[in-house]
């Protein structure tokens, strides 16, 4: 009797409403990451443009002047833009991980799918819930 008392019959309308709010919150979570992701994408585009401009400057340079100068002076004076660009790139990719931030909604959606898979649920890249039939081994 106590065992049966614990197994309460589920109200389908309550479960349906719960799943709706569950899905609504998942959608909010993934949608929220969109603007931040866009800002990081703009940052990486600007960085790529800068790299292109600095690179093209060296390719367009027809006269190659060879001087006997130390390496440190070369990096700090004539190639200061290259040095700064290198360190900014290192900062962006190694520390901030910008290559992952630009796909942050996809990463969060994949994490949601991993967390939902034991419950026969899934979600698309927008957070919309995909309900699969709950298969459980019902022992006779």
């Amino acid at each position: 009797m106590a065992i049966q008392a614990r197994r309460m019959p589920e109200d389908p309308s309550t479960a349906c409403e719960d799943l709706k709010f569950f899905e609504k919150r998942l959608t909010e979570v993934i949608t929220y990451m969109g603007p931040t992701c866009t800002r990081w994408r703009i940052a990486i585009v600007i960085f790529a443009v800068l790299v292109g401009v600095i690179g093209s400057k060296y390719f367009a340079n027809e006269k190659i002047e060879i001087f006997q100068i130390p390496m440190i002076d070369m990096f700090l004076t004539t190639h200061l833009d290259f040095t700064l660009c290198f360190f900014v790139g290192l900062l962006l990719f190694a520390v901030f991980g910008v290559h992952r931030r630009i796909v942050a909604p996809t990463i969060v959606a994949r994490r949601c799918r991993d967390a939902l898979s034991p419950f026969s649920l899934s979600c698309d890249h927008n957070g919309k819930l995909i309900v699969k039939p709950a298969v459980r081994n019902s022992a006779p």
Binding site: E10, T14, A15, E17, D18, L19, F21, F22, E23, K24, R25, L26, V29, I30, V108, R111, C112, A115, L116, P118, F119, S120, L121, A134
Partner: peptide, 19 residues
């Protein structure tokens, strides 16, 4: 994100009973 969304259910078993 799963636990964040689970807060909004009136009965956690609506989702967790599908385990």
């Amino acid at each position: 994100p799963f636990l964040d969304a689970l807060r909004f259910t009136s009965d956690v078993r609506s989702v967790l009973s599908r385990n």
